[in-house]
Simulated assay, not measured.
Amino acid sequence: MENSFYFSFSTHRRSYSLRLNRRKTQWTAMIIVVVLIALIVSLKLLVNVNSKQSESMFSLLGNVKTLQSNNESLFQANLSLSADVGQSNELFEAVDARIGLLEQLVSETDQEAEQLHNPDYFSRIELASLSYKHRLNMLNWLPNGKPLDYHRISSSYGKRLHPISLRRSKHRGIDLSARNGTPVYAPADGFVEYTRKNHNEGYGNMIRITHGLGFMTLYAHLKTLKVKNGQFVKKGQLIALSGNSGASTAPHLHYEIRFLNKSLDPKPFMNWHIGDFDSIFHIVKDVPWDYLNLQLHNLSTLPAPLLSQLESQLKAPSELKDTSISTEALKETFIPIAA
């Protein structure tokens, strides 16, 4: 009886009793204690493992952030390096373009020296400078650039429907829409061959200027004339104010360029400048540019007294028949072109 335990309990209907063996109960308790201890040890081990894994994860996250920061720094450095490389490439291209231009100038001036049969007279740099001066002289003698500050091209060169007669005909110039009274400037050196004012038909008030080497420019529908017949003008000089005179539907400048009295499209000449000097030679085919270049070079090499005498005659063209410049002297200044 001492090795047993009795438990009893009852309800209002019946009673219950439970007998437990003391020895069996002790073994059961021991097993439960062992199991609890094993569970506690396992939980502790799991906690330690999770703690280490968390620490490793936090360490990995820190490394990832560091790598991201390093990657961003490398990306910015790469962008900066790319920009530097781009600037360097642009600089190299600009230097290469300048070298190409100098080589072209040197080549051209070498050809000039061969034509003059004296290739050793100038150094290569002096000949390149001479070629540049030749280009500036050409831009002073021949019409180039815009004759006025205009809003738009209201009518281009070539075939068109006339705004007044409503007939299809060739437009021998270009119409530049501009505010009434806009200053008009000479596009090259020359002398005023013809002026007309107080005229309300056709071209209205107009000016015609003769330039060097067979070129002529015409300005129509003007408001006010600032030059007179026979007057010598310089490139960039004010010659008139634009208007709406004659057969005109709105204020504008009718601008013409002619070579040996043959009309040319003025637009390529308006875009012609020292920075894009050669393009016009390929666009305008109706002008013998090689011949004109050679003649201009010969004019630039005239003796000073003969050149000043020729300029004085240009300023007074009506007296050209009385010039004292001999025909033989003029012939000597031009090199004949082989057929």
Rank of each mutant, 00 (worst) to 15 (best):
W141L: 05
L320P: 00
G181R: 03
K159F: 05
R124S: 14
L101R: 14
V35Q: 08
L67Q: 13
K228L: 06
K24F: 13
N70Y: 08
N205A: 04
S300L: 05
Y150W: 12
H211P: 01
K197W: 08
I337L: 11
Y255N: 03
A339E: 09
G62N: 15
L46M: 15
H221M: 11
V284Q: 05
R172A: 03
S69R: 15
R13T: 11
V47I: 09
S324E: 03
V41P: 03
R196L: 09
S8A: 05
I125H: 10
I274C: 07
F232A: 05
G86F: 13
Y121A: 15
F58W: 06
A97S: 14
Y132A: 11
H162V: 07
Q231G: 07
E2W: 03
P187Q: 05
G158D: 01
V95H: 04
P147M: 06
P336Y: 01
N3H: 09
R13S: 11
L45Q: 11
E93G: 04
G236F: 06
M216L: 09
H273G: 12
E72A: 15
V33R: 12
P183M: 10
S4V: 07
M216W: 02
V64C: 06
W141D: 02
E90Q: 13
H221V: 07
K267D: 00
Y121R: 14
S169T: 15
S177I: 02
T327S: 11
I335C: 04
P143F: 07
V34K: 11
L74F: 09
I37Q: 12
L74N: 12
Y194V: 05
P305R: 02
Q237R: 08
S279C: 00
S131C: 04
K331W: 01
N89M: 13
A77N: 10
S10K: 08
L67I: 11
E103R: 14
V227A: 06
G100D: 12
A240Q: 12
P317L: 00
T301I: 07
N144S: 14
S129R: 08
E114R: 14
K223M: 11
L296F: 03
H12E: 10
I283A: 06
H134T: 10
Q76T: 11
S248F: 01
